[in-house]
């Protein structure tokens, strides 16, 4: 449960500092939620999706596996404390939720050069045939831990701890510099 109301501020100093019309674009995802979902050793993703569809169909079932029995559940709608408590109560027997909306943020790196830029920092093979749309990998970009999810053809969403988000943002700007116009 949240002890304080969320004051959703952008963590980035220059949130619009990506190249307009360039082959690369970096943008923060400002709204929505990130919940860490923890299951027991026997829990599986199909059961989780089924439970979420039943308990909170309005929030979608965009779950990204981070580890055995652990997922990040993300969505674009803001979730109130009351609603979160309701969902948690309905899932009690099977899954535990930890609100990470304040602690982890999302950003989207997109454009035809996004794969090349990410490849400078991570060793996960992002080629189209190996890393399908919707697939996630918990890895590192440089020395910063981040979860990489392919959301569209040339579009990757990154989930990173808030305290590292500014550094990662700056690093990505450097990595993308060769593709930025002006």
């Amino acid at each position: 449960m949240r002890d304080y109301p969320l004051n959703n501020r952008c963590a980035f100093p220059h949130p619009d500092a990506s190249g307009a019309g360039a082959s690369i674009n970096l943008a923060p995802v400002k709204d929505g939620f990130v919940f860490h979902v923890l299951g027991d050793a026997k829990s599986d993703e199909a059961a989780l999706r089924q439970a979420l569809a039943k308990v909170a169909p309005e929030l979608g079932d965009d779950v990204r596996k981070s580890s055995p029995g652990q997922w990040f559940w993300v969505g674009s709608i803001a979730v109130s404390d009351v609603r979160l408590a309701e969902i948690q109560a309905a899932l009690t027997d099977t899954f535990a939720l930890v609100d990470q909306t304040h602690g982890r943020l999302r950003m989207v790196l997109s454009g035809p050069s996004s794969r090349t830029v990410l490849a400078k920092g991570t060793m996960v093979d992002l080629s189209t045939d190996l890393f399908a749309i919707g697939q996630s990998a918990m890895s590192q970009i440089g020395h910063i831990g981040a979860m990489i999810t392919r959301v569209e053809d040339d579009s990757f969403e990154l989930i990173v701890l808030r305290s590292f988000a500014g550094s990662l943002w700056d690093e990505l700007q450097h990595m993308a510099a060769e593709f930025l116009t002006g």
Binding site: S67, P68, Q140
Partner: peptide
């Protein structure tokens, strides 16, 4: 023992 600290943390 190896800890996958930068990935699944197992």
């Amino acid at each position: 023992y190896w800890h996958h600290s930068g990935g699944c943390r197992r």
